[in-house]
Amino acid sequence: MAEDRNNKPASTIEEPERRRMFKKVSRRLGAAVVGSIIGSALLRSRPAPAASVLRPPGALPEKDFQSACVRCGLCVEDCPFDILKLASWADPAPMGTPFFTAREEPCRMCYDIPCVAACPTGALDPLLTDIRKADMGLAVLVDHETCLNYKGMTCSICVRVCPIRGEAISLKPIQNELGVLQIPTVDSTKCTGCGTCEKHCVLAEAAIRVLPRELGQGLSGANPAGRTPVWGMKG
């Protein structure tokens, strides 16, 4: 029997056969590993959503949104004011995802929220039924030097155009060397981030801007130093 095994040409073939198989499998595995590294490098090299990119009302948090949104554009087509756009290759948002730019066209806050109703996947949360609860971002008065109200004038256009009238942005008096100034102040619990204030700011570049909430708002920390460890928290 042992003799038989030694003499059989099949046994001499079997070994190279197996070796070839191993070679084939490991070559493919190698290609897969190299491919995944290059592929994820490509994916990561795509620009992160810019701060000026705002999502439609009801959008899930950015990470969940990017996995739930199938880039179909139904929200875009159902927007009666045509403010939404699907990101093309060159836009600063993941390709095909819907966004709007407040300075160009702000969200008009339709009471029936047609974009959310149109979303087939739930990337725009169907539980959002009251547009005043939307959270597209947060208006921040980013520039205290050019804002006319800080110069002692009462422009206050941002306060007057705000659709959450008198609640999301209101004038608060502060005292400085110029006297008493009426400063537009945003209530972060009321602001929906629709961007109407940014759109209508009279300056050449808006002094008040809507930022995604994680950029526009601080977060009190849990430890005594006032900071939680934040390495890698920003995604």
């Binding site: 880039r71 993941p94 390709m95 095909g96």
Partner: peptide, 29 residues
């Protein structure tokens, strides 16, 4: 590869390139 990358990246990997929907978007905008 596109399925593996989808799992790894948590975003729809192929949709970052997909020429089919790109074609339709280009027709509109």
């Amino acid at each position: 590869m596109s399925l593996v990358l989808t799992v790894l990246s948590g975003t729809l990997a192929w949709e970052n390139f997909n020429p089919i929907t790109l074609f339709q978007r280009e027709l509109m905008w």
